[in-house]
């Protein structure tokens, strides 16, 4: 089925009959756990990822209590409920490593897309000589049990020899795997890197 077929099919189905993107039960764009610019994404039936949009990073991953929601809405804010698998309460952000030097980056959130099988988040990382674009893809299906949580990140515009270092807590807790299956501690090149939570 090509793109033209999809469009024809979409036009033939009344919008009301199709699921709209950004179902709050899948992706909540309300503030989470006291962070004003944050969102929460559900992976599988019971795992949630909380994103700090100003740091371009996951700040919490948790599993909903059995038979209960993992995200509680109170007014126009939400809070996580369940067992925390990962938390990052620091202000650490991404860093660019170039020629043995580590450079800070300024994070700018660029938005999110809700595709059929995944959510994509995008940020711009501004540094002293330019900007990088960081893409994160969060599959909506449950991760394999061994991984618990799975995400894919890639970065645009890294030059040869440059590396993008995740925030320290992420480097410490998450397993980063390069496309070549090799374990990594940073993002290099333009290929996706898989982040899992052993």
């Amino acid at each position: 089925m090509n793109r033209r077929h999809i469009l024809i099919l979409a036009a033939a189905v009344p919008l009301a009959a199709r699921a709209l993107p950004f179902d709050p039960n899948v992706i909540s764009r309300l503030s989470l756990d006291g962070k004003p610019r944050s969102l929460a994404i559900r992976q599988g039936a019971e795992v949630w990822l909380g994103y700090d949009l100003e740091r371009a990073t996951v700040f919490k991953t948790w599993q909903a209590p059995v038979g209960k929601p993992g995200l509680i809405k109170a007014g126009f804010a939400t809070r996580s409920a369940g067992e925390a698998w990962f938390t990052d309460q620091t202000d650490d952000s991404w860093q660019l490593r170039r020629g043995g030097q580590t450079l800070p980056v300024k994070v700018r959130y660029l938005g999110c897309s809700h595709r059929e099988k995944h959510i994509e988040l995008t940020w711009e990382l501004l540094h002293e000589t330019g900007a990088l674009k960081l893409h994160e893809r969060i599959p909506l299906a449950a991760a394999p049990a061994a991984d618990r949580v799975a995400r894919e990140l890639r970065v645009e515009s890294l030059a040869d020899g440059e590396e993008l270092l995740p925030p320290a807590a992420m480097r410490k807790a998450w397993k980063i795997t390069h496309e070549s299956k090799a374990t990594a501690t940073s993002l290099t090149g333009t290929a996706p890197h898989r982040f899992t939570l052993p």
Partner: peptide
Amino acid sequence: ADGDGAFETYRCVSHD
């Protein structure tokens, strides 16, 4: 973007 009537992207224009 795909013209199917559903807005699949919420682009952040600014939050500065």
